[in-house]
Computed example of a mutant assay.
Amino acid sequence: MEIKKVSMIGLGALGILFGHHLSKRMPKEDLRIVADRKRIEKYETEGVYCNDERCNFNYVAPEENCEPADLLIFTVKNSGLKDAIKAVKNHVGENTIIISALNGISSEAIIGETYGMDKLLYCVAQGMDAVKVGNKLTYENMGMLCIGDQKPGIISEKVKRVAAFFEKQNVPYEIEKDMYKKLWSKFMLNVGVNQTVAVYGSNYGDIQREGPAREMMIAAMREVITLAEKEGIMLTEDDITYWLHVLSKLSPEGKPSMAQDVEAKRLSEVDLFAGTVLELGKKHGIPTPVNKELYERIKEIESQY
């Protein structure tokens, strides 16, 4: 069954990046950007731009009746996930495949509570260096989407359908056979790079070279390795090396989403990152001093808004 109808919700960096890419390759009516009417009015009035090109999006309000999507993609912030789940109700049908490009390790389970885990594939977005300022996104590296099944070691028909769609639309992707480990590995990266760059008020260049920021980032990631083992996930120093290689390819002027949140004086996802690490540390009786420092410093920054 070929994927033809696609719905997306969330026009942050990932939503704009992949939405713009797909909009240039698909019939306009087949790609639906779900947003409330107030947001739609703003998007249509002010425009949404990707690398200085105005996006030609087909906006659909949550209450509009429509044909269910073959593929539904969540690209909202974690804080907006519960509202997004309600908003896409009309887009979920019997054969809809759902992927979530959200940070963290819990969004799939939260979506699955409403729509069923049988509809979900695991997904991780990596390797993009997009920077969003207001309604304008710029990037040098598009990165890719890693997809896979919930059970390790298999490649289901759902994965094959999504892969065929990505192939047709020229979306960079990889199929992973152990996606739950991949989710934890990406979580480890976010805990390190997102929070460190935010605290230092810098960019990828600062953690690409030797120095205190890079050291703090790696130390925060190592705390996740220790906790992951207690949760039955085997991460190693090789996983850190892998991500350092990925980071080395990004534009030095680029920066992760949390650093962009801090610059814009928006509340960040620190509770999703260091907050989760601190909770797991408490659960397993393992000290996590680096993430404790990152948590406290980011909360202090946010208290000044």
Rank of each mutant, 00 (worst) to 15 (best):
K283I: 10
Q150I: 13
A69M: 05
N65V: 13
D36S: 13
R222D: 06
V262N: 00
W243P: 03
C66Y: 15
Q208F: 09
R37Y: 07
I218E: 08
A35V: 05
I40A: 03
L235G: 00
P152R: 11
I175E: 05
V133Q: 14
E2D: 14
V34A: 00
G153Y: 14
V34N: 04
A164M: 09
L145P: 00
A228S: 00
A125H: 09
D30L: 15
L227I: 01
K292Y: 10
G104T: 14
S251E: 13
L31C: 09
I207S: 02
F166N: 02
E67C: 07
G143V: 00
E215M: 14
N56T: 11
V246A: 04
T114P: 11
S251F: 14
I99N: 02
N78L: 05
R54I: 04
V191D: 10
E2R: 15
M8D: 03
S303K: 04
K160E: 14
K82Q: 10
V162W: 02
M144V: 09
N56E: 11
E108K: 13
K24T: 13
L102T: 02
S7Y: 14
V60A: 10
V133G: 12
N203I: 01
G153H: 15
V162E: 00
I110T: 11
H21P: 10
N170Q: 13
P212K: 04
G19M: 06
D239Q: 08
I233G: 05
I240D: 01
V124C: 00
P62D: 11
Y242T: 02
D52F: 02
I154F: 11
P289N: 07
M117K: 15
E176D: 15
Q126G: 05
K38D: 14
V277A: 04
R39F: 12
G127V: 03
V197S: 00
